[in-house]
Write a protein that binds this DNA or RNA. Sequence first.
DNA 1: AATGAAATTTCCTGGGT
DNA 2: ACCCAGGAAATTTCATT
Lengths: 152, 152
Amino acid sequence: MQIDDVDQRIIASLVADARASYSEIGERVSLSAPAVKRRVDRLRSAGVIRGFTAVVDPAAVGWTTEAFVELYCTGRTTPAQLTVATRRHPEVVGAYTVSGEADALVHLRAADIAHLEQALERLRAEPFVTSTRSMIVLSRLVDSPNIVPAPH
Amino acid sequence: MQIDDVDQRIIASLVADARASYSEIGERVSLSAPAVKRRVDRLRSAGVIRGFTAVVDPAAVGWTTEAFVELYCTGRTTPAQLTVATRRHPEVVGAYTVSGEADALVHLRAADIAHLEQALERLRAEPFVTSTRSMIVLSRLVDSPNIVPAPH
DNA sequence: AATGAAATTTCCTGGGT
DNA sequence: ACCCAGGAAATTTCATT
């Protein structure tokens, strides 16, 4: 699918404020509200825009602990297996296969340290996990959920 | 600030779809649209809801490469220094101080490998960085931007 | 094919109870 | 918290280029 400059600006606008009205966006990109809607619909159905979400302060809703865990897995572990396994754990907010020493990196979010420990144990109990290496998040310095800068 | 069960459900609803109308949300939580709006306004001004954003497929807008980089820093590096430094790099989409061997973990997003390499070099050139350890993301298995499950 | 204008429906948002 | 009402926005239809 082709994304032109106007689409880019519409996307940027929605990333900055997903609840902006079509006419508001239209003003910024010099288009009528219906035209903006049609473009947004097109971008959505093409999968460029996956959805719209609220950015919530995890601490404010009782999730104060966060960690990144490197997973070392047995030889024949497939990404599909990893996907299925990690999705089973509600504490997993991100999971990636990576190059380097580890096979995967998992981003966990939990209510507190006890909860995190419990989640970690559950994760380590997955049959393909041989060992793990954890980094507990002490403070969040930067966290731009899905900010997509203009193309390089 | 006090968050009751209804607030939790409103938040969950907005996380799932930030463009849902107040009446739509009201239906799900058995509240009138004005009541929902008042709660959302309160949650926003309290900082529980930080904002609303579009979830964009980075690949679709030309950002195909991602990496996590562990930063090893000199003894007297403050979180404030790290914040300032990492924010200078547009490729940094996340940065955290962590417990463990490394001092910080940085999440990078770039257009391609060449761009990533360049960003990494720039990051390594920061005066307080003594060494780095990179994990390039091969595939994204799970990525739930700001999904906040019900409290434990 | 994509846009703008108009018309209809739905929604937002203030004040009153 | 709900109901109500005036104004704004969304969304469909239609005509234009």
